[in-house]
């Protein structure tokens, strides 16, 4: 037999030393690995992103209204009601409405009236949010749920 064990015999003392060292290292490493999970929250501390809009007749076709404090724009058209997130898809500033559509104050991204990206660094268009109705008929927006652009809720 000509294995490595034969050509480089390892002294018993070295072997025990190394075994002890590695056991300690693995134990401490494992404990640390378990602990670094701590800063990654498993439950996010955020409040529900669902909120009530009001009765559908408060939004006759043609209205377009920013919901204060929610950073959501509600547009009503003949084909239904939709909600657009005003949070810029670039780095999270709040876009403002203008004649052409929306523009972002932070790095100059611009979106058209349907939230499609027309200029600037934003990687994608504004998010369209889920609109639905509660049992009493009042409209509800779930800002945590994105839907395909162009989705209108038919009242």
């Amino acid at each position: 037999m000509s294995g490595r064990l034969e050509s480089e015999p390892i002294a018993r003392r070295d072997f025990l030393g190394l075994a002890g060292l590695w056991t300690t290292a693995i134990a401490i490493g494992g404990a640390l690995l378990g602990m670094v999970r701590l800063p990654k929250p498993s439950v996010l501390p955020e409040a529900s992103r669902r909120f009530r809009l009001g009765r559908p007749d408060e939004f006759p076709p043609g209205t377009s209204k920013v919901i204060a404090g929610q950073n959501v724009l509600v547009v009503s058209k003949p084909q239904g009601i939709a909600a657009l997130s005003l949070v810029c898809t670039h780095l999270g500033c709040i876009v403002s409405k203008n004649e052409a559509g929306f523009s972002c104050p932070c790095h100059g991204s611009a979106f058209d009236g349907d939230g499609r990206i027309v200029a600037g660094p934003a990687p994608r268009g504004l998010r369209w949010l889920q609109v639905s109705a509660a049992v009493d008929g009042r409209l509800i927006v779930n800002a945590g749920n994105e839907v395909d652009p162009g989705t209108y809720y038919r009242v």
Binding site: G69, L91, C106, H107, P121, P123
Partner: peptide, 24 residues
Amino acid sequence: NIPENPAKAPWYFLGLQEMVSYSA
């Protein structure tokens, strides 16, 4: 609800912000 306009980082990050305004 209302971002600063313009919203500028501290000066030593402004070169970075210029780069970010092309692609984050």
